[in-house]
């Protein structure tokens, strides 16, 4: 696989993810408007944006759940639309809501995922064991998913994404519903994960603190368009705010700063 990719275009195709001019439409509504981003090897890329900014739509297009209206996506040099099965093998995905096969237990669900991904029993069992122990869900491992809390279901989804150690992890609000211990664990886990191999992580979040601590680079989406991108330092330079937090930069770039204060004033008068 690697040889084939290098042969075609080494500089671009080795990237875990390259999105060029991506446009996603729902009827007349343009959810993602000519978005171009890259996730480089060893990089955690955070996609930030308000509700409806197009984060989840971007992630869904990357994992092949949505067909782009325009533009292209390349996962290690492969197009998810033309080669859906291959690219899905290269990606681990955590959706924003933990909608799973509720009638299955975590063991049964992970066995299904491992079977579809064609994983070796011994290897996958060892890996599952280390993640299940780390997330402390041994007790819930044989209970139906329907009876588990959102946080536990989220942990199962995360384990499902890590199970085949893919070159690209696509995580949609992965830390939602997790307890503080698990959030910390995930932060460490993701940092450790991208340090090995040519791996990259694309993840969306509303939580600026998490993005600030975890991401190597962030992209800020506003109404489907990329309004800012780079490291925290680069974004500070872009907005000419020397010591600004990511939240302040985000509000400035999305032109929401004044809107927030106006809304607070209006609520105070109500």
């Amino acid at each position: 696989m690697g040889g084939r990719v290098l042969h075609a275009n080494a500089s671009v195709l080795e990237l875990p993810l390259a999105v060029r001019n991506l446009t996603v439409q729902y009827g007349p509504l343009i959810a993602v408007d000519h978005l171009s981003i890259q996730v480089r090897p060893h990089e955690i890329y955070g996609l930030l944006g308000s509700n409806g900014a197009g984060k989840s739509s971007t992630l869904k297009a990357v994992v092949g759940l949505l067909t782009p209206a325009d533009g292209s996506i390349s996962v290690l040099g492969h197009d998810p639309v033309r080669e859906p099965v291959f690219t899905k093998q290269m990606v681990g995905y955590v959706p924003e809501t933990a909608l799973l096969y509720d009638a299955l237990t975590p063991r049964e669900f992970l066995e299904f995922v491992a079977s579809v991904r064609g994983l070796d029993s011994q290897e996958v069992s060892a890996r599952a064991k280390s993640y299940v122990t780390a997330f402390q869900i041994e007790r819930e491992f044989d209970q139906p998913l329907a009876t588990l809390s959102n946080g536990t279901r989220q942990k199962i989804l995360l384990i499902g994404a890590f199970l085949h150690q893919p070159p690209l992890l696509v995580l949609d609000e992965p830390l939602n519903s997790l307890d503080p211990r698990s959030v910390r664990l995930m932060r460490e886990l993701l940092t450790q994960y991208v340090s090995r191999g040519q791996r990259g992580v694309l993840f969306s979040t509303h939580t600026m603190e998490v993005a600030e601590r975890l991401c190597h680079r962030v992209g800020i989406l506003d109404r489907g368009r990329l309004v800012g991108e780079g490291t925290l330092e680069a974004l500070r330079g872009q907005t000419a705010q020397g010591n600004a937090t990511l939240e302040e930069i985000f509000l400035r770039l999305t032109r929401e700063e004044e809107g927030v204060y106006a809304a607070v004033r209006a609520l105070g008068r109500a």
Binding site: L65, K88, P95, L99, L100, V113
Partner: peptide
């Protein structure tokens, strides 16, 4: 039941 997730599997 797991429609969107299954569609992301190979």
């Amino acid at each position: 039941m797991g429609y969107s997730y299954t569609r992301t599997l190979p």
